[in-house]
Structures are given as C-alpha cells and as structure tokens.
Design a protein around this nucleic acid. Structure first.
Lengths: 138, 138, 138, 138
DNA sequence: GTGGTCTAGACCACG
DNA sequence: GTGGTCTAGACCACT
C-alpha cells in the first residue's frame, strides 16, 4: 500500500508523509482510523522505526494525525485538514505553471499538459486501489 | 540580476543553475555570450567560488553551456537547449497538477489557479527587467 | 464529574490525580468520604483499572487518601492535605511568573493576567457544579 | 551558559529549547548571531548531537532560528518572535493562578507569591550573567 | 567544517 | 503492546 523508494533523493520520512496525506485526502482512510504502529510499519516497509516516527511526529505537528502514547496514532478529522492541504497543492501548481511560462513554454503547451495530468489523475482516482486494510485500518 | 536567497533550504548552486537557465530561456542572454568567470560571479554574489564552480559544471554537463579552457564559459545555442528545459518545466506542471487532483482539488479550482499563474507570468515577462549587464555578459 | 481527555498528552493517571485533588480542595468531597472502587471508577470512565490503580497508589503515597484493605479508599483529613497541595500550586505560580518575567513580559502585563485569572477562578468557584455524587462518593 | 539536568524528567531537547529561547528573550544574544554548531554544543554539554539537532530543528519550525546547511544555525529577528513567546508565558501564568485559586489558595497568598517571583526575576535579570561568548555568539 | 538523514539498539512511561 | 527519548555511529550534501 505504502511504497517507499529507498533510492530516491527525497528523504524516506517525507515520502511517508506524502503517501499518508494522500491516502487521507483520497478518503481511503476512515476518519479516526488507527494507523499502523511505528514498529509495524517500519518492519513492513523494511526501514528503521525511528524514521517512521519522525514522519508521524511531523504529521502530528501539522495536525494530520494525533498520537496517544501507549495506544497508537490516529487520523485527525478529515475536514479540518483537507482545505489546508489542498491550498498547498494549488500553490505548487501556480508555482510550476509560472515557472514553465517564464521558461518560454507556450500557453497552449501548458494547458495541454494540465489537461493530460487531470485525466491521468482521474484515472488513478477511479482505479479501485488494492488497500492492505489490515495494515492501515487495523 | 542574479539573486541568491541564503536563507532558502534550496542549495545555492541549484538556485544559481535555475536563475541562469531562466535568463537564457527568457532570451535575456544572447546566444554564445560569455558568462562571468567563476571567481567574478562568486565575489559579486558573495558566495564561495566552489559553489559557482559546481553550478557551472552541472550546467555544462546538461549542455546549457560550454567551457573553453582559458577563455571562459559560454552559453550553448539557445534552440538546442530550449526544448529540453521546457520539457522539464512541463513535467513539473504535470506532476503538481496530478498531485493537486489526487489531494481532492476540483478540476475547476486547478484550472483557475493555472489561468492566474499564466497571467502573472505574462506580466512578469513584459516588465522590462533591469538587467545588470556588467555581471551577466561581462 | 471526573473528565478524562484521552487525546491529551498528559497521562491519564495524572489527570485522575489532579481531578481528585481538585475535588477535595474545593471541599466538594466530605472528609473521610469513600472513593469509588478501582474497578467501578475504571468502568465508569472507560479506562483500564491499572490506570486507576496507579493514580490511587500515588495519591496514597502523597497522603491524599488512605486505603483500608477490603473496605476501600478514603480521603484523608482535609486540613492535613490542604496546605501541602496549596504550597505546590503556589510554587507553580512562582515558577510561571518568574519565567514570564525572564521572557521579557512587563510587570504590568503579568499582574493584569494574574488579576484576570483570579476573577475567572472566582466565577468558577461560585458556579454551583453539577456533581455526580454517585460516582465520587459512591 | 546552557545548563542541562540530565536527571530531569523533562527531555533534554526541551530543556535546550527553553534555555535558548530564554537567552534570546533576554536579549543576551544578538539578532542573527550564530549559535554553536550541533556537534560543538553536543560535545560541550556532553550529550548526543542528535539530541541537539532535535532541539534546533524544532526551534526552526517555531521560527525561533533558521538554519543554513553547511553554514550553521542563526537566531531569527527577535521582534518577530518576542510577542508570541510572551503570550505563551502569560497564558501559563493565568493557568497556574487559576489552578491555585481553585485549590483554595487565598487571593492574598497568590499575590504575595507573584510579587516575590517578580522580584527574584528582576534580580536574575540584573545580574550580569557570565556568558560564554565563545560558544554562543561565536 | 556545517547540517540532514538514517540505522541499530537501548531504556522509559503508559495502558 | 504502544509511543517518546536518547545514544553511537554512519553516510550524504553543502560551503
């Protein structure tokens, strides 16, 4: 379910953060559902528990999840988070479009790429993901 | 002309690469024009020559510029480069749009942000930049 | 009557201790009144009996209550306890005031906040609390 | 200068955070002054560099300092931070005063403790601290 | 030299 | 069992 590229230049803990937020945003995780424990997830992915914890702690600080010592980590209410994450995404779109334009890409080219991206995203969303519910929802 | 944000988490050498490519893409630098020497640029910006060196080396490796020992560094022919840089920009647009969509942003919201970004980029491009030609063209 | 915030980072057993002490201090519990049994309280609050046990043990160690095997737990004489709990509270006040001052808060600001806090506490005290006597006095 | 109690229940990295903010608040550190490097401070205090880094990273996230990879960590502009830290301190004062009052402390007792605390803080502030400038300001 | 990431393994507090 | 803290030591990117 959660896939990590150990060779990526992007830190593992950031990949983890992204993937968890994405799952939450897609509504694939029920509100208040329990996340896999630090140790379990670490073992499943094959990384060090500390790395998972770093991701969890940062997500907690961002309000994406909350943690109860001795009990586990749980997703925060979706709606509280949704808007703020979406705003961030849209800002990144703005940024990349501006950049492309300044690099001389034509308006038509840019719009074409945007349309294509929208379509592939749509396909991804409709594809019933094979979620490993044992691990995620526990 | 070239502005470095020392506070940014983005490595200085990457900021340098971006800015030089952008200048090239905007057609603000004539083809085959000579770039400031490593030492000159480093001194002007107030950073370590090694850092400038690293940026130049990578740009050369990417074909953006070529170096003639003893004479200096020169921009490659624009057209050779243009497409490849633009491709990279467009891919980033794709990426961010896909991401936004997966985070639940509506198609309309995304397109709105794209349109806005295009407009602000247009404005930036038409604004006659105050280029410090001494530094760039030397 | 006793409210536990499971989301809080403060250990449940500490929350329990605080709330029991506060009830005692406010004079809402008669001297020598019997506390609910570990199991009862645990079931009512919906937490683990071990946790209640831990709170009771520590309160006993601090002299707040005493336990008679087979009969239950009872509050100690108020007056014995009052001073020591109050001393602790006052020390915390001292600590926080010192800290605020060292952080550059003006004397006037601090005193203003103290006055306000005193007033809101006064209001709370005069408000007739709806005590669930079944749970506390059993 | 920075003193850590290794036996305290309070995590080392939190003690570090507190002490650094306090130094900043007292104006004992010049704006934009460089903090000791992670490794240096760790060695001086006799703790693990990771622990120092945790403190630094959290302070960065709170806007107290900023970090430039390869160069070190620097204090943020004081004024940006001051108010927000002071607000937090004052809230803690409120909290403790309310608590003391609810525990039955008399208004007079509380005010007396506040006055005393203010005085000791004053004394601390006026005492010219022996700052190890080599380590802190570098 | 600097900070950033990661691992391995330990101990603690909580439930 | 859970998360929280800490250590020791490694490797990387940046200056």
């Amino acid at each position: 379910m959660i896939e990590i590229d150990l060779h990526s230049r992007k830190p593992i803990y950031e990949q983890l953060k992204e993937q968890i937020t994405k799952l939450l945003m897609l509504g694939l995780l029920e509100e208040s559902s329990r996340l896999p424990s630090v140790r379990t997830l670490a073992r499943d992915i094959g990384i060090n528990p500390n790395t998972v914890q770093k991701a969890y702690q940062q997500l907690e600080q961002e309000g994406i999840l909350y943690t109860v010592t001795g009990k586990g980590s749980f997703l925060s209410a979706e709606n509280v988070i949704r808007k703020q994450v979406q705003k961030k995404s849209l800002d990144e779109v703005s940024q990349s479009v501006k950049n492309a334009s300044l690099n001389g890409c034509s308006k038509d080219d840019i719009i074409e790429f945007v349309e294509n991206a929208l379509q592939s995203a749509e396909i991804l969303k409709n594809k019933p993901l094979k979620i490993d519910e044992k691990n995620i929802k526990e």
